[in-house]
Design a protein around this nucleic acid. Structure first.
Length: 189
DNA sequence: TTTCCATTCCGA
DNA sequence: TCGGAATGGAAA
């Protein structure tokens, strides 16, 4: 994978992030680059639709013959790697963190939030069932790691500023959950 | 608004 | 068929 390409597209994306809530209206260059990487999924996928189109397609009211139409996003290896890495360190993110990381990953805030929610559920279920921990779908994928390294090194200043320093916690999520004090498990006991 | 939770339903 | 992204509802 060409990190330069990623980086340049990331550079663009991080600079021009006109809207937070949803999705870039651009053809999501990073997605295209990453998801097309030989290492992720090679088969042609229609989920490569620009997210904005997807959103439009799956508006609540949109139905196909009375059925709700969903479009299932398939996240790229790199996106999953970053998401998992973040999740392992922090189960709950602030609104700002979610928005910013979502922007970096070229995901919508909603997608990002949903992923974290689903991960938490998965994690809880797993623990209830005493699953061997770390059931991450993307654990040590070498190429994802490589991309991720470049990705993070490029964004490191930004990420550190955004996350590492835990800037201003806009909402009470983190505090109320007190994740710094109690483990993930404590909720389920 | 956020969360959890059950559920739906797409894509591999 | 199954994993998991997305949805919707209830509660805080």
């Amino acid at each position: 994978m060409d990190l330069k390409k990623i980086n340049s597209s990331l550079q663009m994306s991080s600079v021009e992030t006109p809207h937070m809530e949803t999705i870039s209206h651009l053809p999501s260059s990073m997605d295209l680059l990453i998801q097309d990487s030989p290492n992720s999924f090679t088969s042609p996928r229609r989920k490569l639709l620009p997210a904005s189109i997807e959103e439009r397609t799956m508006k609540k009211e949109d139905t196909v013959q009375g059925k709700k139409q969903k479009i299932k996003t398939v996240f790229s290896q790199t996106q999953l790697y970053v998401l998992n890495d973040r999740f392992q360190r922090q189960k709950y993110l602030s609104l700002q963190q979610m928005q910013e990381l979502a922007n970096i990953l070229k995901l919508s805030y909603k997608q990002f939030k949903t992923w974290f929610q689903n991960q938490r559920m998965k994690c809880m279920r797993c623990q209830k069932n005493n699953c061997p921990k770390n059931s991450n779908s993307v654990t040590q994928n070498s190429s994802a790691t490589t991309e991720y390294t470049g990705f993070y090194s490029y964004h490191w200043g930004y990420l550190m500023n955004t996350f590492g320093n835990l800037p201003k916690w806009r909402n009470q999520t983190w505090n109320s959950q007190s994740w710094s004090n109690h483990s993930w498990n404590s909720r389920n006991n």
